[in-house]
Computed example of a mutant assay.
Amino acid sequence: MQRICVIGGSRYFGKLLVQRSLEAGHRVTVVNRGSAPPPPGAEHLVVDRDDEAALTAALGGRTFDVVVDQVCYTPVQAAIAVRVFRDRTARYVMTSTIEVYDPATVAPAPATPGVPVAEERVDPAGWRVRLDLPWHDPAYLEAHYAEGKRQAEAVFTREGPFAFASVRSAHVLGGGDQEFTGRLAHYVERVGRGEEIAVHREEQPSVFIHYAELAGLLAWAATGTGFTGPLNACSDGLLDVTGLTAVVAAASGVLPVHRTVAPGEQAGPFSFDRFYAMSNRRAKELGFAFSRTADWLPAVAAEAVAASAAPAS
């Protein structure tokens, strides 16, 4: 039994992480702003993680074996967490993102087309941190999502007194109506209505992960291994939008209609004109076994098609 603190954890794969941790016999404390209650059995602390004094007071004398941070988006939030949890935990796991590799927002050594990128391509140990940028501005944060994640990783890596690991998640699918990004629903609806799907002329594939698999990997990262540093999390197999919509079409019985966008024109979600699909080799070498996207995607697409067809309540 371990004492686990989950920051966030009120929905989607974070909620599933809490459920699975409780089922495994761990003591779980969920810290969030109270938007949704945690699963039964978890302790719930309602507090804004951006308010350092309030967070410190809410935690009181609690200590943990590991903290899993689902909602750290900026270096300012990371710096607060370092100070608050300095003497409260031995291990800290942050949920990060594939977007840290996006060449549209960062300029490390260019990726080799067709060769999935490894963790060292973006090394947080040497990444520049700017705490003075307007991270509190929602519009700025949305426009600089990937950079906020990179700088947050950098703060934890360089300043955290605990063992730190970041899980760089691929694009997450599954979970039916819990899939709050709406990106799969975008394609389900357009395919179902026979509307055009905007794609790049030379689509570059990406990587994906099922929400339940990501919850399992986070639980494994928290309690099943002591690795540190960044870790890519993605199911096996590359996939582009044409392949994705083909699976949606098979579930809906309607053929997709694709339209190639002009240079500079925005395409649909998951359509990329640049390659930065991740390699999951490090996680496999550490002992985690991934599924194949092609194995679980048809069921996810069928679930999304059924949800789209269901009458509104």
Rank of each mutant, 00 (worst) to 15 (best):
P269T: 02
P38V: 09
A143K: 05
T260I: 15
W135E: 11
L131A: 14
R3W: 09
V305K: 05
E159N: 02
A125N: 02
V71K: 00
A185V: 00
D65N: 12
E43M: 10
R158E: 08
S21Y: 07
A146P: 01
D50F: 00
Y187N: 07
S291E: 14
T63A: 15
L244E: 01
R91E: 14
A250F: 04
P103L: 08
P298D: 08
G229C: 03
F270A: 00
S169R: 01
R281C: 07
L22A: 12
E99K: 01
A104R: 08
V76Y: 03
P37V: 14
V247L: 13
P116T: 00
A139R: 09
E99A: 07
A78D: 04
H210A: 12
S206E: 09
A299F: 10
V67A: 12
V254K: 04
A219R: 15
R86K: 15
C72E: 07
V66I: 09
K149G: 10
H210N: 10
Q70S: 14
V247N: 02
D273K: 15
R86Y: 09
A143N: 02
A107I: 06
A277P: 13
D102P: 03
R130G: 05
V106C: 05
G60M: 02
I4M: 10
D51V: 08
Q204K: 15
P39C: 11
A58G: 06
T293S: 05
E120F: 15
V115T: 06
V106M: 02
W296H: 11
E179A: 14
P116G: 01
G14Y: 07
P40K: 06
T29S: 12
W296M: 03
F85P: 04
E213V: 02
M278E: 04
H258G: 00
E99M: 00
L214M: 00
A57G: 05
A277K: 05
A24P: 03
D69E: 14
